[in-house]
């Protein structure tokens, strides 16, 4: 293993090697797609059962992102992306709660690999700037030279810092947590790791919320009228 990366390749799709992490990600995507399909397959005007739960979650999500982004229209536009981030990261983090997951290929949480967190952060990065350009047109470039042109390097560093901090925070937290659980499992099986895994349930949710909140904040800042 090289710094959070499994080198075990399962098979190749043309020239692209597919490893255990990618298959785990496909499984998570399948869970999300099936869940969304089951929750929305028979929508009714007067909701009942599962549709009630889905509608409640969607309404909460819209309200929550409206608070963070200060604009209902932007919140509704980006809520699907941000909610998908949250659910994907949450399930990824929880996939590591299987005892010793960090040491079993195929059960390693995808978010404990920096390639995955970097890919998620890049999606945010592009969403921020595409959102900025679609809201302000070419005028969006003006924010890179605010308050004047001398601040260009500082503003560029700030922009690069966003995806970097998103990547490192999520990867560091989940990878570190997995390593600690794995070593504790080796040194004191069952009792101590179990307590820490209980804490991991909370930490996994917090990390998913933090990534989603910061992504929402960056998108909200780039698309806001005062930008």
């Amino acid at each position: 293993m090289i710094f959070g990366m499994w080198d075990g390749v399962l098979f190749h799709l043309g020239p692209i090697p597919v490893d255990h992490l990618v298959v785990t990600e496909w499984a998570i995507i399948a869970i999300l797609v099936i869940g969304a399909y089951l929750g929305t397959r028979s929508m009714k005007l007067v909701p009942s059962g599962g549709q009630n739960v889905v509608e409640m979650v969607v309404t909460f999500t819209y309200d929550f992102f409206t608070q963070v982004m200060d604009d209902e229209h932007t919140a509704k536009k980006y809520a699907p992306l941000l909610s998908t981030f949250f659910l994907f990261i949450l399930i990824s983090n929880y996939s590591g709660l299987i005892p010793g997951a960090a040491h079993i290929e195929g059960f390693q949480p995808p978010t404990s690999n920096w390639n995955v967190t970097a890919a998620l952060a890049l999606v945010t990065f592009f969403a921020v700037h595409i959102g900025g350009f679609s809201s302000h047109g070419a005028g969006y470039l003006g924010h890179f030279v605010k308050p004047n042109a001398a601040f260009l390097p500082l503003n560029l560093i700030e922009e690069i810092a966003h995806p970097l901090s998103l990547t490192v925070r999520l990867f560091g937290n989940i990878f570190g947590e997995e390593m600690i659980i794995a070593y504790l499992l080796f040194m004191a099986p069952f009792v101590v790791p179990s307590a820490l895994m209980g804490l991991s349930v909370l930490l996994g949710a917090i990390q998913a919320i933090v990534f989603t909140l910061l992504s929402a904040s960056y998108i909200g800042a780039a698309t806001s009228a005062g930008h």
């Binding site: 901090s165 925070r169 910061l214």
Partner: peptide
């Protein structure tokens, strides 16, 4: 607006650390 305040606090800490690390 607790969600916005929380985001600002999170954003501030990590952004400051990240820009110094990048430099």
């Amino acid at each position: 607006n607790w969600a916005k305040s929380l985001t600002m606090a999170l954003n501030l800490g990590t952004s400051v650390a990240a820009v110094i690390a990048i430099g």
